[in-house]
Design a protein around this nucleic acid. Structure first.
Lengths: 256, 256
DNA sequence: CGGTGTTTTGAGGGCTATCAATGGGTGTGG
DNA sequence: CCACACCCATTGATAGCCCTCAAAACACCG
């Protein structure tokens, strides 16, 4: 189910895939967020105590049960968090993008492993600095709440959705402003009733997708093939999937 | 899968079930927490702006998509958080006990429904008060981190564990200090090598357990019957389950 | 002691995992 | 430039776990 990977999987310099607007949730089942002022956070990030690290794809930031020393803020790229069971089963519990935090710990040990999905930049922060400012703490608070909402959505996906619904939900993650509660719908989206289509650039292997969705690699593959056969998506390359009709994919997520 | 419930399910006055020591995680796969000083929080709770509400079992504190007005702290009893899919499938995403917080929102809408599992007391807090104190914010942050760790564990359970492993993990929630990383083990636990047994008082119906574990009511029932047949547990009443050999249950959680 | 709601048990089927083989893309070396 | 190797993804066959539907057993209550 989980095999340690070393090979790099086609990382173009355009490491997009995720929409970077953090104030707009993209995950099917979550909500659109209100904008907030985090200027204090921006100032803190620029302070000399905050170091910037670069990671290659598949580089490990920290490992489950390592001593938790730092807090990390994703500046660019994507980071996945996962846990392992004793026999090697893996569950990707979260996927982080621009502005998200990880590495916080109550126990002194990291509760999961953090691994870069793409080349990534992370700011390494000192917890003690943050604890002295209400503005910084409030920012961290908002980040944690964002994670909690995402984890709630993910629990629904893992506990109650079929394989097709999981894959559809996963694909909808990459469509900005759609598949969320208060979805703007296909009509108002494109200019002048253009085709409701979207190109998704996956930055994950089938194995990583499967471990995120609580499925096997074969099932993910089968579902994608089935969606392709039905003309709902077209697979232009393994990591380039076109949603031919976004609304149709959205309707398959199970949230309606 | 989910039927609206009204009937009360045997709520004794001894609404225990969960261990109330928040500084010790009990959920299989999570870690033991370090104690922290939250005296500022204690003072704030006592302030006149913090109201105390009482809820009966199955009373709803707030509903998914309601306007989020307040923050809630569980004082006594247990609260479950759940989300519904359009066709009525339900997933219980979290179960809260003494000291846990819920009701925070970034979007202005609650992202899930909160319902009392037992008679419960909740303190209704004002977000604006908290946002002005580093100590209060730090306390909230710790509470949120606790939830995130629990949600990570739950994602592993929902995504990668078998029905038996899920039920075993669920039962181990109720055994203080066991089934966590750094588990004290059977030898050092009892005084003078007493039987490694534990009585679990469930405050949830089979339906609620099933919706928490991402299973059906029938599967939960079948697993429990099977464990009983094998002598691993004994069901003294529907809501009283004796773990005959805690260590054996622990080994079935899948975390080893 | 029936009535109601919950839990257990049974039979059967569907969905997803498992095991195995094939296909395809990329990089390397002759 | 092609052959080969390697890794990843796809496809196929089969098995098994858990869900669904149905009925019986049980608990609680008036």
């Amino acid at each position: 189910m989980f095999i340690e990977k070393k090979a790099s999987f086609d990382e173009g310099p355009a490491a997009g895939g995720f929409d970077n607007d953090r104030h707009r949730s993209r995950y099917a089942g979550t909500r659109v967020r209100a904008p907030v002022d985090d200027s204090a956070w921006t100032r803190y990030r620029a302070s000399p105590r905050a170091r910037l690290d670069r990671h290659d794809a598949h580089s490990v930031l920290f490992r489950e049960d390592d001593a938790a020393s730092h807090l990390y803020e994703v500046v660019s790229g994507q980071i996945m968090l996962y846990r392992l069971l004793g026999d090697g089963r893996r569950q990707v519990v979260d996927i982080l993008g621009d502005g998200d935090l990880c590495g916080y710990s109550l126990t002194g040990l990291y509760d999961c492993t953090a691994e870069a999905l793409t080349p990534a930049e992370v700011r390494v922060l000192d917890r003690r600095d943050i604890d002295q400012s209400t503005e910084l703490l409030a920012h961290v608070n908002r980040c944690l709440l964002t994670r909690i909402e995402a984890l709630h959505s993910h629990a629904v996906l893992l506990g109650r959705k079929s394989a097709t619904e999981r894959v559809a939900s996963f694909l909808m993650r990459f469509v900005p402003g759609r598949g969320v509660v208060g979805c703007i719908g296909p009509e108002r989206h494109g200019e002048r009733h253009s085709a409701d289509t979207e190109l998704v650039l996956l930055k994950m292997t089938r194995q990583e997708i499967a471990d995120f969705l609580g499925l096997t690699i074969e099932t993910v593959s089968r579902v994608l093939s089935d969606l392709k056969r039905r003309g709902i998506i077209s697979i232009e390359r393994n990591d380039r999937i076109r949603l031919v009709d976004v609304c149709r994919v959205c309707k398959m997520t199970g949230i309606h």
